[in-house]
């Protein structure tokens, strides 16, 4: 099924759910005002549902909005969810942020989302892009007086190459067919690139990766795991992390945020898509999730039964490093 057909399916499902009063709101994507930037959209009426769309640029994780709804809105919500988003919904249910009955999952197999920065880099940083259309395995990029065809798989988001769950793990209805379950890349090969470095080179690589960070916290705020009412960086007494652009402060923020995602991160890539500075935020979360797989055989959000790995223990857990 192509994007248009899936978008049509989403609209029909949303219209039906809203018309029958089964949900208060359908959370989906609508076309943004700039190319390659579909945006979250809240449809409350069947008419509004007509604005819903679907493409390879649906890069926000909508599970994020299930926990950030205005106070007082507690009714049932439908949400458009690809594989990773559904895994985050499962995670939120496990963490008691949401009950399964509160959410109607409109599942869609992910085509592998596209990275607008890669598209821009591929056509040239100085070019103005006025539109980008997916045509099968290709992306047709257009600007004033020029056109260029790119291979879709060359401009995918990093996390989508190694996705292990393109199909939604839970859904109330599925739009389109299920696809190949994975994209074929091996996550363990790329999850922790600094492991290859000599320990003495790692701190420099770590610092360099985050040197452009402006601490806007878009990575945190776009993340469906970061729902703390007060984040540790915002705590003032004690103040765990300074407010400055000193490397020590910037790196403390990123280290601790990543650690707080341990055993929970589904590698949805929302953090990297949100970052205005193009920072590879997944360098840290990737390492942690790789460790969690290795040490505890756990991948987040794949089923509703298992217990998150840092909320449980076993007598024979590894402890070789403890004296």
């Amino acid at each position: 099924m192509d994007n248009q057909a899936i978008a049509q399916g989403i609209r029909e499902a949303a219209q039906r759910l809203l018309a029958e009063g089964l949900v208060d709101c359908v959370l989906g994507y609508e076309a943004g005002t700039v190319p390659m930037r579909e945006r979250p959209f809240f449809a409350y009426t069947p008419e509004e549902a007509l604005r819903l769309t679907w493409s390879g640029f649906c890069c926000n994780n909508l599970a994020n909005f299930l926990i950030r709804r205005p106070q007082g809105e507690t009714g049932k919500v439908a949400v458009v969810a690809q594989g990773c988003v559904s895994r985050n919904i499962v995670g939120l249910i496990k963490e008691h942020q949401l009950s399964r009955e509160q959410v109607h999952v409109i599942g869609v197999a992910s085509p592998g989302m596209l990275d607008r920065d890669k598209v821009q880099a591929a056509v040239g940083a100085d070019k103005v892009i006025s539109a980008a259309h997916e045509e099968g395995d290709e992306l047709l990029v257009e600007g004033p007086g020029w056109q260029e065809r790119l291979e879709r798989k060359k401009v995918m988001r990093d996390n989508c190459y190694t996705c292990v769950q393109r199909n939604p793990v839970i859904h109330n209805e599925l739009i389109g067919e299920e696809s190949e379950p994975t994209h074929g890349g091996v996550i363990d090969k790329v999850a922790a690139p600094w492991e290859k470095l000599d320990p003495s080179e790692r701190l420099a690589a770590f610092g360099e990766n985050y040197q452009d960070c402006i601490r806007c916290y878009a990575c945190r705020d776009a993340c469906p795991l970061c729902y703390c009412h007060v984040c540790f960086v915002d705590e003032a007494k004690p103040q765990w992390c300074g407010k400055t652009q000193d490397e020590a402060d910037v790196l403390t923020y990123h280290l601790l945020r990543a650690f707080h995602c341990a055993g929970r991160c589904t590698d949805c890539g929302a953090c990297e898509s949100a970052c205005p500075q193009g920072i590879k935020v997944r360098r840290l979360t990737g390492k942690i999730e790789k460790d969690v797989r290795e040490f505890y055989g756990y991948a987040p959000g794949l089923d509703e039964e298992s217990v998150p790995p840092l909320s449980v223990h076993k007598p024979d857990d590894p402890q070789g490093f403890i004296k």
């Binding site: 945006r39 979250p40 959209f41 809240f42 994020n64 909005f65 950030r68 402006i214 601490r215 806007c216 916290y217 878009a218 945190r220 705020d221 776009a222 300074g242 407010k243 400055t244 949100a274 205005p276």
Partner: peptide, 24 residues
């Protein structure tokens, strides 16, 4: 509705100018 309350718009903006003063 969809705002994440992040600081991207503010920090890229040429006219946004709010600040926080701290003693370290």
């Amino acid at each position: 509705e969809s705002c994440l309350n992040c600081g991207t718009c503010t920090f890229c903006c040429p006219t946004c100018h709010c600040f926080d003063i701290q003693d370290e």
